[in-house]
Amino acid sequence: MSTIIYPSPIFGPIHSRRLGVSLGINLLPADGKCCTFDCIYCECGYNKDHRPHAKLPTREEVYNALERRLINMQANGPAPDVLTFAGNGEPTLHPHFKEIIEDTITLRNRYFPNARISVLSNSTQIHCPEVFEALCRVDNNILKLDTVDTAYINKVDRPAGSYDVNRIIEGMKAFQGNLIIQTMFLKGKTDEGKDVDNTSDVFVLPWLEVVKAIAPRQVMIYTIDRETPDSFLQKATHEELDRIVTLLEQAGLRASASY
């Protein structure tokens, strides 16, 4: 099983299927994974296999490393389309997430004012006031909602500790449309032989009703693109993703699929 553990605090730029030329910002240790989910499709592998030993990067380390990279990109290219908080787990777990977002806005405005700031989050910390406030300030507040089925969440996303999908939904509504919902669709089975296909109407239609109630400004659906910890997972097909995009568009929602 191949996994990706990202350098910290800056990695890339990489070409993102959804965002373009993306300079990554990893607020988690460079030698392991910290996440409130343990998704069976995570490109970083299982939490238990990648326990970090290094400390989180400090606010100052993130600022200095980001500024150095932006100066280099200004001189040598390429120009980033987006500065993306992602990496080895859940970025909003960093205790200075709000302040680092403020610093990133300052540096973006100084060096690449046309670049957008994105955060890829599993939504588990949006009830924290400082996290909520910081996410309201970024250009792309991209929040995960793979399904509204609790059994599926526990089987595929595997939250650590307590997780209430209804609380997450209410937290998403609080953004009043200033968010992008990101949903993984996949097929196949877990390594224990449990079915994980969430492309049928049994999963899609209840999820769609909730998405309509949240009313995000965009919905990004996607499927697996890299090797996964569970080895029997399969990509959703183009046709299946296109069908879901059509349902979203018929509901008046802006939607896109990454295959």
Results as ranks from 00 to 15, higher is better:
H50I: 05
D49P: 05
D49C: 08
C128L: 08
I153A: 04
V62Y: 12
H94R: 01
F175Q: 01
P95S: 03
D197C: 09
V119F: 03
T104E: 05
S2Q: 14
Y6H: 10
V196Q: 14
N76C: 07
Y46R: 14
L143Y: 00
G45W: 08
M73D: 09
H50R: 14
K48T: 09
D230C: 14
N178H: 15
E249A: 07
G77K: 10
S2V: 13
S256T: 13
S121R: 00
C34L: 15
S256W: 11
P159V: 03
N109D: 14
N76Y: 11
F85I: 03
R243V: 05
Q234C: 13
K187Q: 09
L241W: 03
A236Q: 02
E192S: 15
P29F: 01
T246R: 14
I71W: 05
E170Y: 00
Y222M: 09
R51Q: 15
R116I: 00
S2W: 06
Q176L: 04
K189F: 13
H53T: 12
G87Y: 06
T246Y: 10
S123A: 15
I100L: 10
L208Q: 07
T183A: 13
K194R: 07
S8P: 10
P9K: 02
N166G: 04
L107I: 04
N47R: 15
L28R: 08
Q234Y: 06
N76M: 07
H53A: 10
